[in-house]
Design a protein around this nucleic acid. Structure first.
Length: 204
DNA sequence: ACAACGATCAACT
DNA sequence: GTTGATCGTTGTC
């Protein structure tokens, strides 16, 4: 699917190339492992709705609720291949980076800006925190209907693409705390060898 | 009330 | 390969 953000400054659009699945109360890696709370409540609501949470006190992560109402479940959007609006993506990424300015010197910020400007277009949204930053998504987006064509942030089915690509399944990232049973489940899905997928190295 | 920690990222050795 | 930044959520007392 395509991820689209329309606002007064124009359009941002990208192709989702990496996701992870999160289940219900039995999934020890899922936020739904807790009883319904203020934060995860939306996960058991109707499907197609955005669930955004803050991780590590610093980054927002965008999820799509996937199961029928009453059954918790969501898909985390981990990486997007930018197609439209890359200039605005850079601006919003900088805004997120500058939140960290308190601990940084002026020189450090200048260097940070330099590095940011040197990030290749195809790496602008190569991680869940980066997807949210590039598309201007924060926790206030929780509850938005991503399937409504009138929503500023939404999903759209692209025209049929004749390209055939391999989707690779692997273990979810950063969930070792859940124990081997759940951490090793191959619930991370990515387009094989795609250069916009998250992870180290630019050699994709 | 309080302590611990995380579905991350970038800078560092 | 290791580590610091930073704060809302969760579990414990």
């Amino acid at each position: 699917m395509r991820l689209i953000r329309d606002d007064e400054t124009g359009r941002r659009e990208g192709r989702i190339v990496e996701v992870e699945a999160y289940g219900g109360s039995d999934d020890r890696a899922s936020h739904a492992r807790f009883a319904s709370t203020l934060r995860n409540r939306v996960m058991s609501g109707p499907p197609g709705i955005a669930y955004v949470y803050l991780v590590y006190g610093m980054y927002d992560c965008l999820n799509v609720v996937t199961e029928v109402e009453g059954k918790p479940g969501a898909v985390l959007i981990r990486a997007v291949e930018p197609l439209i609006g890359m200039a605005r993506m850079r601006v919003d990424r900088l805004a997120v980076a500058s939140r960290r300015r308190a601990a940084r010197t002026a020189v450090g910020m200048a260097m940070s800006r330099e590095r940011m400007a040197s990030v290749a277009d195809h790496r602008l949204a190569s991680g869940p925190g980066l997807v949210a930053a590039a598309f201007g998504v924060d926790t206030a987006v929780t509850g938005v209907d991503l399937c409504d064509p009138r929503s500023s942030l939404r999903l759209e089915q692209p025209p049929d693409d004749p390209t055939r690509e391999t989707v690779e399944a692997s273990a979810r990232v950063g969930v070792a705390y859940a124990g081997d049973d759940w951490a090793s489940r191959p619930w991370r899905f990515a387009i094989a060898r795609h250069r916009s997928v998250s992870g180290r190295g630019t050699g994709r």
